[in-house]
């Protein structure tokens, strides 16, 4: 089908020519997802660490809950958030619905369980001696944690990348609480959904390419980091 190649050519041209509308959308996506990830990393890592090192009552329950939350579809998170933030909802006075902040909150909630679960596994697989040695050498708890995080840094990077990939590629929640408003809350994925609906495939394909390239860059980057890690631990 000729139109397939035509669409691809048009998509690449849009990207290369620096089409403003297109890059605004990409900007919104990155701003929202990066902010959500940055906000989530610290609490999630701490929770993941606590789950791995601290046998407290309810720990098992919290772990199961984390795994369950990971499987919750993004639209469900979106729906719950929508109901909370709606003018009729309990948090309606915050007037957050259909803003980037609402999208950030949604993506924060989406990546938190994933980050907790993966950082928990990372810490669980860590060499305990790292923490113990730091402690024996008089480091304060924060510094011990830092040493431990350095020890499992590759697993943590992988965890952050997976979380970022999940939220930048999700459409359900972003559409619901963001509202796909041009120049405000239109992200890569909601734009693709819209362009397909309009029958305008070129922009959709261009945005899809961005996600594809992003995934590739992240994975290649991860591979390089891992390679370096192997070299260092030989």
């Amino acid at each position: 089908m000729a139109s397939l190649t035509e669409t691809f050519a048009a998509a690449v041209e849009l990207l290369v020519s620096g089409d403003e509308a297109l890059w605004t959308i990409i900007g919104v996506s990155f701003r929202v997802s990066f902010t959500a990830l940055l906000l989530a990393i610290i609490p999630a890592t701490l929770i993941g660490f606590a789950l791995a090192y601290w046998r407290f009552p309810g720990r098992w329950l919290l772990l199961s809950l984390t795994h369950t939350l990971m499987a919750v579809p993004t639209v469900v998170v979106g729906l719950i958030l929508f109901m909370l933030l709606s003018r009729a909802g309990p948090l309606g006075d915050w007037r957050l619905l259909f803003t980037q902040d609402a999208m950030i909150v949604g993506q924060f909630l989406l990546c938190l369980p994933l980050l907790v679960s993966m950082s928990h596994s990372a810490f669980q697989g860590a060499d305990k001696r790292a923490w113990e040695t730091a402690k024996m050498l008089g480091a304060n708890p924060l510094r011990c944690l830092w040493v431990l995080m350095l020890e499992v840094r590759y697993a943590l990077y992988a965890c952050f990348i997976a979380a970022f990939a999940r939220i930048i590629a999700e459409v359900g929640c972003a559409m619901m609480v963001g509202g796909n408003i041009l120049n405000y809350t239109r992200s890569i994925t909601t734009a693709i959904a819209l362009e397909t609906l309009k029958g305008e495939y070129a922009q959709g394909v261009a945005l899809g390419l961005v996600l594809f390239i992003l995934a590739m860059v992240l994975n290649v980057g991860m591979g390089l980091l891992r390679g370096k890690g192997q070299l260092a631990s030989r």
Binding site: S86, R87, L97, F98, M175, G179, N180, I181, L182, N183, Y184, R186, T190, A191, L194, L197, K198
Partner: peptide, 18 residues
């Protein structure tokens, strides 16, 4: 002026919220 690129029902909801 805000373009939302969604169905009519959703647009009414958004208009109501905003």
């Amino acid at each position: 002026y805000r373009e939302v690129g969604q169905g009519m029902g959703k647009v009414l909801q958004i208009s109501s919220e905003l």
